[in-house]
Simulated scan of single mutants.
Amino acid sequence: MRSTFKATVKMLLRTPGAIVWALAFPILMATLFMFMFSSMRTDGAVDAVPVAVVADGAWEESTFSQVIESLASGDDALVAVREVDDAAEARSLLEEGEVDGTFEVDEAGVPHLTVAPESSDAHQGERGRSYGINRSILETLASSYVQSAALIEEVAASDPAALADPAAVARALSLEAGSERVSLTRGTPDETVRYYYALMGMAALFASQLSMLAVANIRPTASAVAARRSIAGVSRVRQLAGALAGSWLLSVAFLTIAFCYVRFVVNIDFAGREVLCLVGIAGSAFMAAGLGSLVGSLPLHGGASAGSGILTGLTCVLSIFAGLYGEPTMKLADAIARAVPVSAWVNPAKLVCDLFHSLYFYESLAPFAARLAACIAWGVVFFAFAAPLFRRQRYAHL
């Protein structure tokens, strides 16, 4: 068994296909995702809302202009002001998508907000994603000012003495409220991390190529060396176990390298549970090794090439239901998981995806432990089917 283990490790390290599928491909996909999702990931900072103001005499004399100026100053400015001479110029900027809204003050000092029409560039492309938030900010500024001004006028008319206390007026006009930040998830929600978790599921299934190649290499018909091994004193089950152990060790190593690349180069958050992620990788690699050993033990006419084709096709199909190929497949995966919950436990790619997902979102380790146990159980089941298949096969000649 020990000699089989060493021979398996050496053979796999010398096989270019094993290195490409189990190590290079996940890193390549992670790099591709990094460029694809770079525009969707933010640092949490709010960009200033571009707004045009008609800087005429009414604007200069209004107190609303002072409010906008205060919000446009400093490093954390809420609005980015662009002054224009008349409403026609402001409208032109609005239609071209240069600004998200325009402010104009009438002779009575009341501000008026004009927002971008549906056909403007503000609604298109990447800007369209943030336009709804920016519009809400501008509407809140205008409505809050109008409400505060109306409140001051009402107080002045009913109880002028109340305006003598500036602190009381400030409290009455303040929009502040006591609040406590509560997170329902362990990590800050990021819609892109799930694709990397699904990628880890795909990488785990591609790692099954290692055990498939290892088992195919020790079949008596694979080579003269394998034929001599088959008549040696070591039982076939022990040879299978040695090949499985060697391929599992390399699978763990390759998946760990891919994980470190995703964590430290792509900078994907794993909620500070990197050590538990490594434990999950070991369990995922065990399941992948069991799956590969089962496919490698099948009496296929094409040998390792046929087994590689089966595993590649199976990996690509199962990754669809883990949501790897974009937002439509992610919605499909969620819909299937809700309609048929057991599907998330029988799909290895989805199981590994949910393994990392549970560490990111849940404080409790129970969901992670359940999925880790499922990965190990599937590995045991696959090996239990592979062992008799490999041991009982008969050959016409060696």
Rank of each mutant, 00 (worst) to 15 (best):
P16N: 12
A22Y: 00
F25H: 00
L28K: 02
A30G: 04
M34Q: 02
V79C: 07
V84N: 07
V84M: 14
D86T: 10
A90L: 06
D106E: 06
G109V: 06
S144D: 14
S144G: 12
A149K: 00
A156M: 02
P160Y: 01
P160F: 03
P166N: 13
A168P: 01
R171T: 07
R171E: 14
V182K: 13
V182N: 13
R186P: 07
G187P: 11
R194L: 12
M202G: 13
L213R: 12
A214Y: 00
A214W: 02
A214M: 05
P220E: 13
R228Y: 12
R236Y: 01
A243H: 11
L244T: 08
G246A: 07
G246P: 00
V252L: 13
T256I: 05
V265W: 01
V266P: 01
A271Q: 12
E274Q: 06
V275L: 14
L276V: 10
C277E: 10
A282W: 14
L291H: 00
L291I: 01
S297E: 11
H301V: 08
G302R: 00
G307C: 11
S308E: 10
S308D: 05
G309R: 03
T312E: 11
C316N: 12
V317Q: 10
G323N: 11
L324S: 11
R338E: 14
A339L: 12
V342Q: 04
W345D: 08
K350S: 15
V352N: 14
F356N: 04
Y360D: 11
F361Q: 14
F361T: 12
L365E: 13
R371K: 03
W378A: 04
